[in-house]
């Protein structure tokens, strides 16, 4: 972030920052709408369940306006280019784990997460990484669920051992 570049881009709006402002305003709107049904239940304290959320909402609106101003002044730091591929791999791993956890048990679900995360970082040989992950996870399952009684969901694989 060299100051020269900031100058040349000065009057151009920073679209990402504008998007942040919109999101902040949207959060505020959701808060206002949701707590509007709670008005007048404050009891003796005058400050009811809706009061503090309202304050937070107003502050978010203020921050949204401030963000818009800064976006036009170009005060945000420049961003490095992001590579989308690895992010997709890892998010896919987390989603797979979430969906498979109940059905396939801890080891298989988490083993897949392990393999896909490694793929996100460049190890794309899934037929090696996923089985490796499953073995590691099974070992961990045996220690934490088997010996230390931590409640980790069991699947077909775990039932073979316990």
């Amino acid at each position: 972030m060299s100051p020269d570049r900031n100058k040349t881009e000065q009057r151009r709006p920073d679209w990402a920052a504008l998007a942040v402002a919109v999101v902040l305003a949207a959060i505020a709107a959701v808060i206002f709408i949701d707590v509007s049904r709670l008005k007048g239940t404050g009891g003796y304290s005058q400050v009811g369940p809706a009061t503090v959320p309202d304050w937070i909402g107003f502050a978010l609106i203020g921050l949204a306006i401030w963000t818009v101003i800064e976006a036009f002044r170009g005060d945000f730091p420049t961003r490095d280019k992001q590579e989308i591929g690895p992010v997709v791999w890892i998010v896919a791993g987390l989603v797979a784990q979430m969906l498979l956890l109940r059905v396939a048990g801890f080891s298989i679900a988490t083993g897949i997460l392990f393999g896909l995360t490694a793929a996100g970082f460049g190890k794309r040989k899934l037929w090696i990484t996923i089985p490796l992950g499953i073995v590691v996870c099974l070992f961990i399952w045996l220690i934490f669920a088997g010996l230390l009684q931590l409640a980790l969901p069991a699947g077909p694989l775990e039932r073979l051992f316990w």
Partner: peptide, 11 residues
């Protein structure tokens, strides 16, 4: 190495 480290962290 990064792939194993971060796979382990997420695990």
């Amino acid at each position: 190495p990064k792939p194993w480290l971060y796979a382990g962290i997420l695990l």
